[in-house]
């Protein structure tokens, strides 16, 4: 039995409605139903160009949401991911930019820039994890204040200015969808295997279920929590690579408004806000569902305010469903 099957509530009832509600493919089915329901009314929804557009914007969100999944499984939350993306974005850009970048024009500028971004992401994750485990502070407060601090730092460092003139090879990582796929698919596969087949994965679920019991059972709880936040920081940094490449510039406010999408997509997928439950595949379904909604509402030419209301309602519905599924699973 894998960690995932041991810890993610499988259907145990014959009631088809309850089975559907508990199915791990529920959100995929909802996505398919939504797609076919809106297809006749939404111009260009099924076109290949639109599919490519959805994929291009889905991949970076999926990567950062994978990190959020890992943290949520431990029973925590990482609200600092958007500031990590912004800080990584300006760090990488400061290294690579042709306009006064530290390694402007150097052949190693791109790998060095990406390495710097990953390092910054991992360091912020480490800080979050250490603050939570060593000072016994709630993850919500730690990562919320980290978000404020690092967002401010990014703006202060750049004086609110974007950093452009990035190398074409770097921009291609975000701009060419197949390259983004080359980055995303192995990452997702690795994260899936780590969660479902490794000891670390079992520890994550165990800590999320009951940290005290896990500690008594010999699980290095603090180390597991710190590692989850480092993973979240690293994945946010990878997402920053794609987002920055898409925008062809490093921005201190990059992803500033993405937090609702990141947490929302993860929860919509079925990862529990209460910890101990979640899968990479579910998160992919959640991201896909959210992106389909976003994309179709845009194509339908609905107003900005309507789109915000619909998305908010969908995320609220997902949170309610999470509560219902948790209750059903506990029976």
């Amino acid at each position: 039995m894998t960690a995932a099957t041991a810890t993610n509530n499988e259907p145990r009832t014959t009631n088809p409605l309850v089975r559907l509600l508990q199915s791990e493919y529920l959100v995929l089915l909802l996505s398919a139903a939504y797609f076919f329901a809106f297809l006749p009314f939404t111009p260009g929804f099924a076109s290949t160009e639109n599919a490519a557009n959805i994929l291009a914007t889905l991949l970076p969100l999926f990567i950062v949401a994978m990190g959020q999944t890992v943290v949520l499984i431990t029973g925590g939350i990482d609200l600092s991911v958007t500031s990590i993306i912004a800080l990584c974005s300006i760090t990488g850009a400061a290294v690579m930019s042709g306009d006064h970048g530290w390694l402007a024009g150097h052949p190693l500028a791109v790998p060095a820039g990406i390495a710097a971004m990953l390092l910054v992401g991992a360091l912020v994750g480490l800080l979050n994890g250490v603050a939570i485990t060593q000072f016994r502070m709630p993850p919500f407060i730690v990562t919320l204040t980290a978000m404020m601090f690092f967002s401010g730092l990014a703006i202060w460092l750049t004086k609110s200015k974007n950093i452009g003139n990035l190398p074409a090879a770097f921009n291609a990582l975000g701009g060419k969808t197949w390259l983004a796929l080359v980055v995303s698919v192995p990452l997702a596969a690795a994260a899936h295997v780590m969660l479902s087949r490794s000891l670390w994965g079992r520890w994550l679920y165990a800590v999320g279920h009951n940290a005290r019991t896990s500690l008594v059972s010999g699980v290095p709880v603090n180390g597991v929590i710190v590692s989850a936040y480092i993973a979240s920081g690293l994945l946010a940094a990878v997402a920053a690579v794609l987002y920055t490449g898409q925008a062809e510039s490093g921005s201190p406010v990059l992803a500033q408004r993405l937090l609702l999408d990141i947490v929302g997509a993860t929860v919509i997928g079925g990862t529990s806000l209460f910890g101990g439950k979640g899968k990479i595949l579910w998160t992919f379904f959640g991201v896909l569902f959210l992106k389909l909604i976003d994309n179709s509402l845009n194509l339908l030419d609905l107003s900005y305010f309507t789109i915000m209301m619909v998305k908010g309602a969908v995320i609220l519905f997902a949170a309610l469903m999470d509560t219902a599924r948790t209750k059903l699973g506990a029976r």
Partner: peptide, 18 residues
């Protein structure tokens, strides 16, 4: 909504709609 990447996506939606 203040998001440069979202704006890229939205304009690509316009292009999709020709």
């Amino acid at each position: 909504d203040g998001d440069a990447n979202r704006q890229i996506e939205q304009v690509k939606n316009f292009i999709t709609r020709k």
